[in-house]
Design a binder for these strands. Structure first.
Lengths: 135, 135
DNA sequence: CATACTGTAATAAAATATATTACAAATGTA
DNA sequence: TACATTTGTAATATATTTTATTACAGTATG
């Protein structure tokens, strides 16, 4: 799982949006991100699974947007790449015999859920087109 | 840098708040988090640097809160442990010769800055006491 | 003075992220 | 048809980051 999944995906989509009539190759995209093309293809596989892009194999193949960029919001991209936001959990399972240890993860989860709502509301208001138009 | 830094720190602080009159040892705290005591001491070092806790060396030593938990907000804890929230960046420096690559990180940073404001506003409204009282 | 702590550095191990290699299958084009 | 180019995907390797462990000097307590 790429840690920069969201960033990479939005980078890919911004490029695709800039060239809406072309099939861009993973190699070309990788050159802009400066990332291995195989990893680009992996993120594209994810986008394909969500029907955001379509791609064509073979010579002159590549990938292009399959949706209207004014309708695709950053919230959707976030959800496709990040599940959920938050400030993390301690890695090991806390001590279930301690009242704090037993419940901390649930309380953190509640806190993070609120956080997600706020962030989602923000991202919902920004389309790929909006984002792309900044460039 | 612990990835669960925030979670671990808030766990520590919640425990300290539950026993405001005792110096808790890193071993005891580590037992609740289920984390190596050395790492607990490292987070405590960070809290000490911010004057949130005080600790006592030697036998029967340990750490206790040095502030009023109703005055300490989760926002402050967030800032002490997490610098900033966001959805990440691609790891490698993007291609500066590409108009998208050249600017993407700045645009992402702007987006994340807005996100931080929203999250900070939320966390500002919750004190350590509030959080601790849930247990 | 023995014991139980903190503080911190150094090192090791584990987990995760990223890169590379390889190749089958698809497709355009000479 | 043969060739070049590209996707799709698996397998493996490398690098990076996290977490754990070990070690021990210094400090307070009884």
């Amino acid at each position: 799982m790429l840690s920069g999944k969201f960033a990479i995906t939005i980078h890919i989509l911004t490029l695709l949006n800039k060239f809406p009539n072309d099939y861009l190759s993973s190699e070309y995209i990788a050159g802009s991100i400066n990332l291995n093309p195989v990893l680009v293809r992996k993120e594209i596989a994810n986008l394909k699974a969500h029907n955001i892009v379509e791609s064509k194999e073979g010579k002159n193949g590549g990938t292009k947007l399959a949706v209207d960029s004014s309708k695709l919001t950053l919230k959707e991209i976030f959800e496709m790449t990040f599940e959920t936001i938050g400030l993390g959990y301690a890695k090991n399972q806390p001590n279930p015999d301690c009242p704090v240890g037993k419940n901390i993860n649930q309380h953190l989860a509640n806190l993070y859920a609120d956080m997600n709502e706020k962030v989602s509301a923000q991202l919902q208001g920004i389309s790929l087109e909006d984002f792309s138009n900044q460039f």
